[in-house]
Design a protein around this nucleic acid. Structure first.
Lengths: 148, 148
DNA sequence: CAATTTTATTTAATAAGTCTAACAATTATT
DNA sequence: AATAATTGTTAGACTTATTAAATAAAATTG
């Protein structure tokens, strides 16, 4: 049985941000999340209520914030998708790191984890084939941007 | 000088739909667009006002609809991005055609045309390498889904 | 510990996109 | 041409996500 309740991109980003902060500090605070996502604290408060309702975070008013197991799973999947897409965008498609990152932050909400894994395997395959065929970075860049 | 005014995904989808219909019939009508995008006609009317304001369609109340040159350029780019992503999703990542299509319909609004071209060249590269290395479809599928 | 600063919440407003329902215009049918 | 059917528009409501401003709670500091 798959995750039926599909989250909005916005809520998924909140979960991802909370996981990111949780792994550095022990818990996340509203301000941390707001700073990380570059939104106002009031937006965070609203989102947290929503996530709590969906049983994705444990959170009491004016207190700290921790992901539930359910929330952690979604956050970790989202983060993994992000990393895979960012890698592909930056190291295979040769986009600027900042563009690779913001692009990943959008596509991560569109594809599922299985598709992301396939992209990761594609990245590996391309890297291997580049090496095996002795394609230089310069040659790869040229190949990438050629219009047929 | 690049396109400064970034359109919303919704509006880009309307342009794409209008181009699709225009190339079949001579002009697009509200109902055609509504059917194609599976929205209500009232949503189309609202969107058209918006697109007209941005000078992307020529359109008078209760009359036919034609893209402006500006609108046609955006629509064509969007369509091209769609096709490239769909191809990659379906033939490289081996997603179901319907899933490949809906995924393309979302990612097309996130990446720019240059990035799409790079993805297209990646698809070509992978196809060549599969052939050159004698990788069968079955082997490719296995390679794709393996978890490291 | 009182005052100040920082952090958090609530409320009201805005924006985009959609829908339903009522109405209007156009087109087809007899 | 009158009526019916189809197509198109308007108006109002709803949803999601955001903000700014007012208020409240918590933490810091002198």
């Amino acid at each position: 049985m798959k995750n039926i309740q599909k989250l909005t991109p916005s809520l998924e980003n909140y979960l991802e941000a909370i996981l990111f902060i949780e792994t550095r500090n022990r818990v996340a605070r509203v301000k941390d999340i707001a700073d990380h996502l570059k939104v106002q604290m009031s937006s965070v408060t609203v989102a947290l209520k929503n996530l709590k309702e969906k049983d994705l975070v444990n959170y009491e008013k004016n207190s700290f914030i921790i992901l539930t197991e359910k929330g952690k799973t979604i956050a970790a999947n989202t983060q993994r998708k992000h990393d895979i897409i960012r890698y592909f965008m930056e190291n295979i498609l040769l986009l600027k790191p900042s563009v690779a990152d913001t692009t990943a932050c959008e596509i991560e909400h569109i594809i599922d984890i299985d598709t992301a894994v396939k992209i990761s395997n594609c990245s590996d395959f391309i890297n291997e084939m580049k090496k095996k065929s002795g394609i230089s970075e310069k040659e790869w860049e040229t190949l990438l941007i050629k219009e047929n």
